[in-house]
Amino acid sequence: MKRVLSLAVLAIAPVLFLSACGGSNAVKEEAAAPAPKTPPPVETPKAQAPRAEEPAPVAKSATPSVHQLDDPSGLLAKRKIYFEYDSSEVQSEFRNVIAAHATYLSANASAAVILEGHCDERGTREYNMALGERRARAVMQALTLQGVNAKQITVVSYGEERPEDPGHSDSAWAKNRRAFISYTSR
């Protein structure tokens, strides 16, 4: 069943990719691209930035030293800010992590991050979308207060869609209430 389902979905994917380009959008958001004659490759590109755990390889510089964002012992390697139940308040234990990212972003004007807000599964989907956004914005506010240009930051909430731990226990939920700092350029 799983196989049948996923195969069917795979088969549908290119059709839907086409469909995503078309339509008569009342709100002009994207230039209407001409529909390609041949369907695009079966796998639609995943619109997902590289996760911080697996950083994209950095261009080799003259010095062999590790980029500070990739130094596993540095504060910049920490990208997750965890939250209390139903709260979007940044806990004091994460202040130094946020300060490190604020310093880096301020010093590197071309660097940019997406702040992802996440929730545990309790509560409704839309409410969690709002709560996730508020968590991401709380981190954004902490960064901008420390001098980061807001233009370097994009906020997106995933609500309860992307749990770090798929379990239904208190410990799983604690891991899922988080904001994630994702570098899109460094």
């Binding site: 339509g23 959008n25 009342a26 709100v27 958001e29 997406i114 979308m129 709002a130 906020v155 909430s157």
Partner: peptide, 25 residues
């Protein structure tokens, strides 16, 4: 598009329209 947008889709014709694409959510 890695952000939330609201579409309206006609289930009889399949036509799909972007109806809410304001800043943020």
């Amino acid at each position: 598009k890695r952000r939330q947008q609201v579409y309206v889709q006609d289930t009889t014709t399949g036509q799909r329209d972007l109806v809410a694409n304001f800043m943020n959510y």
